[in-house]
């Protein structure tokens, strides 16, 4: 099991907390946050291997967080969580440098597969 430090960001606390717990049960080192601005600050300061980021968040949305993170830490791969009907956001995210996106509801095995690919691609 690769040791991955994952930062999850979503304003729905019950969702992101549960996802964090499920990833932790699988051996990953997970931090979760509810706010985009806080995520930008922590991502700049702490050694996360991958970010998983909801697009639709109050205040600073996921695409804005992505832009700021890429400015501060361009090497961190970012995976976007999007809702159905947000295909344009997904496309914009890829153009802004997201590694990939995954639609809610999330299949955890698929999320892990993408995270490992993202970190592997990072070297």
């Amino acid at each position: 099991m690769p040791e991955l430090r994952v930062l999850l960001v979503d304003d729905e606390e019950e969702l992101v907390g549960t996802l964090a717990e499920r990833l932790a049960l699988r051996g990953y080192d997970v931090t979760y946050l509810l706010d985009g601005a806080e995520a930008v600050r922590r991502a700049a300061q702490e050694p996360f291997d991958v970010l998983v980021l909801d697009v639709m968040m109050p205040g600073m949305n996921g695409l804005e967080v992505l832009k700021e993170v890429k400015r501060a830490r361009p090497e961190i791969p970012v995976i976007l969580l999007t809702g159905r009907g947000s295909e344009q956001d997904s496309q914009t995210g890829l153009e802004l440098g997201a590694f990939d996106y995954i639609m809610k509801p999330v299949k955890i095995d698929r999320l892990i597969e993408i995270m490992l690919k993202a970190v592997g691609a990072n070297g």
């Binding site: 969702l15 717990e21 159905r84 009907g85 809610k104 509801p105």
Partner: peptide, 24 residues
């Protein structure tokens, strides 16, 4: 669209919680 987005979030939480039960 707004209601369906919120409902999708609710269903996603329920699915994640059921996945968590399986994991536990």
């Amino acid at each position: 669209a707004s209601v369906s987005h919120e409902l999708n979030n609710i269903m996603t939480i329920i699915l994640e919680k059921s996945g968590l039960m399986t994991d536990l």
